[in-house]
Write a protein that binds this DNA or RNA. Sequence first.
DNA 1: GGAACGTTAGGACATATGTCCTTTCTCAAA
DNA 2: TTTGAGAAAGGACATATGTCCTAACGTTCC
Lengths: 231, 231
Amino acid sequence: MKETKEIQTEPYMHQYELNRLFPGEFKNQMKAYHFSKGDDLFTTGEELEELYFLVEGKIKIYTLTPEGKSLINRFKRPLGVIGDVEYVKGSPVINSVEAVTDGVMLAIPFADLKELEAMHPQVIRFLLETVAHKFYSESQATSMHMLYPVEVRLASYLLSISSDGEGTLFHQEMRTANLTELAEWIGTSYRHLNRVLKKMASEGTIERSNGIIQIKNLESLRTLANGNIYE
Amino acid sequence: MKETKEIQTEPYMHQYELNRLFPGEFKNQMKAYHFSKGDDLFTTGEELEELYFLVEGKIKIYTLTPEGKSLINRFKRPLGVIGDVEYVKGSPVINSVEAVTDGVMLAIPFADLKELEAMHPQVIRFLLETVAHKFYSESQATSMHMLYPVEVRLASYLLSISSDGEGTLFHQEMRTANLTELAEWIGTSYRHLNRVLKKMASEGTIERSNGIIQIKNLESLRTLANGNIYE
DNA sequence: GGAACGTTAGGACATATGTCCTTTCTCAAA
DNA sequence: TTTGAGAAAGGACATATGTCCTAACGTTCC
């Protein structure tokens, strides 16, 4: 991820209403970074020194298993905040972050943020809200993973991206590019995802060809999802 | 959980330094509640109206599986904060809470807290720290569950409660009363926990009798724990 | 001392899932 | 048009884990 002077931070700060959080000379402390698809942005264990705002593009937060397999915790689109927990706790990065598309981040040094807290408590409230929301989202996702088998999770995913679930940014965020990435998102092996897809196809719930999945029986899918939907 | 006038809030507020967060007349808004072992304190989906501070006793936060089985997310001892995420997000309770021992909670209404935020931003910072810490702890626990089989998780648990890991409050917090509770904490069935314990006993790593586990080979346990320790 | 209940321990059967690998297909580039 | 790479699809084998159930043991209460 490269810092760049070619990107104006002001349009993004305006677009995402960051000016009210970073008044006066603090907005001048904002840097802009550009990243490219596939870039490793942050690595587990790394120490951060800035708070980041994703203002363009899509990233994924993932965990590597001991076998080197990737499990996707979350996708993110603008406006996403990265480094808030690390800032508050002073601990290293928990999960790795990779660019799914090209994009832009704004960043402000932790030192400036520290100063700003004293002068402008609204920023503390903002951070509280982002961290609380993260906790909530992560809890939901964790419950899904811990409590339901792959079939239920897949049905929930398909419901989310069907026209039924579409409309929220989150659902756009979540759409995966191929079956390998879908397996990583749902938290299973590529092989097992195929078993479940095949089973759903044989039941007439979906129809698939060459990685393209078409929902044939929405009701059946709702039943399989067991009241859950990825959100 | 019953509100009680028989418990003085002031000694606890002093002991846990809550006076500096709740100055002046706000400390008078604090109520005290007593609870008994086995009480259901909060239920998933319930709407809260107060922020709670656990100042005496031990509780567990748990999730019920669709089959009605219980999975323990976390134990808590004083000073624990309950309801911070629900306060910030305005969402219902995420996980159920039950008393493991008798105990006491202090509580302040969300409405008073709202007022206090404007007058005393330190309380926002306090909440930010508690939520960030929760996020961090939950992430660690989730990783443990998602990435490692029961054998590694059990070894990590045993390492934590051995004299090696002992000393922190968290490890005391985590000690379970019987094998059923340990299975719920580690996130497996009672039957499977027994398989793994039996295997460890046959390897000479532990010795067990009547639910009592004695570590025989600390090195072997460290190897099995694969660098992990419950914390 | 005996009964009742909760806990410990494990057998038998089943399912979910992972790993490793091969074949086929599709798409893009030469 | 051909080639190569990546993705899709699935076979074979294995392990981890869950469910249901029974027997034995220990503790508490009558």
